[in-house]
Design a protein around this nucleic acid. Sequence first.
DNA 1: TCTAGTCGCGTACGCTGTATACGTCTAACT
DNA 2: AGTTAGACGTATACAGCGTACGCGACTAGA
Lengths: 239, 239
Amino acid sequence: MTDEPPPVIWARLSSQGRGPARTLDYRAITTAAIALADEDGVDAVSMRKVAGRMDHSPMSLYRHIGSKEDLTELMYDAVLGELDLTGIPSGSWRADVARLAGEMRRLHHAHPWIVRFGHRPSLGPNARRFLETGLACVDGLGLDIDGMLDLLSTALQFTRGFVVQELGEVEAQRRTGLDFAGYQRHTGPFITQLLQEGGLPYLRRLVLEAEDLPDPDVVFERRLGMVLDGLAAGIGRRG
Amino acid sequence: MTDEPPPVIWARLSSQGRGPARTLDYRAITTAAIALADEDGVDAVSMRKVAGRMDHSPMSLYRHIGSKEDLTELMYDAVLGELDLTGIPSGSWRADVARLAGEMRRLHHAHPWIVRFGHRPSLGPNARRFLETGLACVDGLGLDIDGMLDLLSTALQFTRGFVVQELGEVEAQRRTGLDFAGYQRHTGPFITQLLQEGGLPYLRRLVLEAEDLPDPDVVFERRLGMVLDGLAAGIGRRG
DNA sequence: TCTAGTCGCGTACGCTGTATACGTCTAACT
DNA sequence: AGTTAGACGTATACAGCGTACGCGACTAGA
């Protein structure tokens, strides 16, 4: 009888046994928590508030999920289910990987809070589906499984980094309750002061020469395109 | 007299005026908080524990920093100061960007908690230094400032995404208190069960065919190399 | 019919960030 | 030189958090 840690959450989701009929289950809890996070931000997700939204007591949730950390994993996998993977693999690995990356980015915009939760490796049903579809897109190119993983992961890791930065700015605005103009008014004086002090030639060039309001979609597609170029070259060399 | 939000934290760091001599300052607080995060994990960083480590009362910290959120920003910028940027720019943009990416990755391994804090855009002194050095590395290639930013950001965004995933696994092990073998014993039965159920051909191939314990340094360098290939092609086209 | 085990919940504990009010100290002003 | 405005560190307090524990109500399997 070793003191094992509890098994992976996905193996622990119980089904109805004896006892009173359930008025609650982990799916409903997850849905409520996601709605709360979407509406009021991730910091508003507390066991008490989630329970309150379902007209239940806080402790009732613990009959269905082991901990708040489990709940975040359920939330993450649940939103992965919103990925639209229809029509892929299509036969063109490059188009498919771009689709996957775009879908991932879209998902982060729909649920900005996942950048705070998605650090953990996940084995949920939707993560599994995503992995299967993703690897199917890069199959048949003459690569072994490690090469396929390189292709897919590199594109998605770039996407993740891009989105983290993108949402960092969005969230900073949301938290301070400012729109973009207000945010600029907020940081502007400080940047002006920095530039007057000198010694920051590239910050100066950024302020003076950089495109004013670059379309983030365009920037993403452009950079993703460069990443995919590099991956394509890698296939030629290894495949 | 509009009700402005407080200015950027970096413009708010006070200097000694009248009143008793200080026994505390934001630098010392930041150092203590970083030590705490390094030793006991990011969740152990509380105002009370940071204060306790310095033999002060919790509220004394608020004379020097505005909020805990400010403290995290100070912590993030402080560790950016540990980046070793000597010898760059060296003249080879590709070597330099690879160095920057490697340094960033090294920093995340030294302070894994920064993946939880580094979402915000930062204007601290070390972030400024990093930006200046980074853009200097991609100057002189015939690119405008937006092209330079594409080059640098794409590589660093990939790095960030890579490291987030890498550390997600490390942290998952740390939290559960398991080493890699224990972690495999933890998830193994569930994965076995999934494979027996069938329908996950690529997960099966990953388990059966993928390299067992790939050296993460090698994987990182390989993928970063592909990204840099793509960026190089982009220079040829635009520069 | 009995009972083991699940259901939802009330209470309680230790922790968190931080608002507020306090006496103390000192640089700057009269 | 005397006064004072304001920064210093701190004690107290409050609302909110995750969740351990124990309760009566309920019901599927023995």
